[in-house]
Amino acid sequence: MKKIVHGAPQIPNPLRVFITFESTGWFDTTQEQKENELLPKLKSIIKEWESNGSELLGTFDRDILTAGHAGPTNWHACFLYNIPDLQTVTNMTHSFRDAGIDRYFRLEASIGRPFFLVEN
């Protein structure tokens, strides 16, 4: 049997980034605010991310078996990206602050790597 050697993880290039998304103040807004202000801003930001060199690998929305506040997981949906560098990750999270929607939505980025037993 081949011995598994597991040294220090290597930081991938591009970065593998898991971004969790939580609705926070969203629940305290009117339907009109959601439709006319928040959703257009949110869609615009996510669309802008397409031009920053990032590659969206997949999304996951937990709403099939949940409703309401995020609960103990602290997220409603997540995005998995390959992102060229740390500054781009920072720019992505900052885009919510810059657009003023960080009081309605929360993002958190985690940097990892492809799982070595599955993706070689």
Results as ranks from 00 to 15, higher is better:
Ile11Ser: 06
Gly25Pro: 04
Pro14Arg: 05
Ser44Asp: 06
Gly25Cys: 06
Phe27Lys: 03
Trp26Asn: 11
Gln31Met: 13
Asn36Tyr: 10
Thr30Phe: 05
Arg16Ile: 07
Phe18Tyr: 14
Lys47Asp: 01
Glu22Phe: 05
Asp28Val: 02
Lys34Trp: 04
Lys43Arg: 11
Glu37Leu: 08
Thr24Asn: 13
Pro12Lys: 11
Thr20Gln: 09
Leu39Ala: 07
Asn36Ala: 08
Phe21Lys: 10
Gln10Ala: 15
Glu48Gln: 07
Glu50Cys: 01
Glu35His: 06
Asn13Thr: 15
Lys34Gln: 14
Gln10Arg: 15
Glu35Met: 03
Ile45Tyr: 03
Phe18Pro: 02
Ser23Tyr: 15
Lys34Asn: 09
Gln31Pro: 08
Asn36Val: 02
Glu22Thr: 06
Leu38Pro: 12
Lys41Gly: 00
Thr30Lys: 05
Glu50His: 12
Ile46Gln: 14
Ile19Gln: 07
Glu35Lys: 08
Glu50Asp: 11
Glu32Thr: 15
Phe21Gln: 10
Lys34Ile: 08
Ile46Trp: 12
Thr20Trp: 01
Gln10Gly: 02
Lys43Gln: 09
Glu37Met: 05
Leu39Val: 15
Lys43Ser: 10
Ser23Ala: 13
Glu37Tyr: 05
Thr20Met: 06
Asn36Ser: 15
Glu35Val: 03
Ile19Trp: 04
Phe27Cys: 03
Asn13Leu: 11
Trp49Met: 06
Gly25Ser: 07
Glu50Ala: 10
Lys47Ala: 00
Glu22Cys: 09
Pro40Ser: 01
Pro12Glu: 09
Leu15Pro: 10
Gln33Ser: 08
Arg16Trp: 02
Ser23Phe: 15
Leu39Ser: 07
Pro14Gly: 05
Ile46Pro: 00
Pro14Gln: 09
Trp26Glu: 11
Asn13Met: 11
Ile19Met: 11
Ile11Cys: 10
Asn36Phe: 05
Leu42Ile: 06
Thr30Leu: 06
Lys34Pro: 00
Leu15Met: 12
Lys41Pro: 01
Asp28Gln: 11
Thr29Lys: 07
Ser44Gly: 03
Thr30Ile: 09
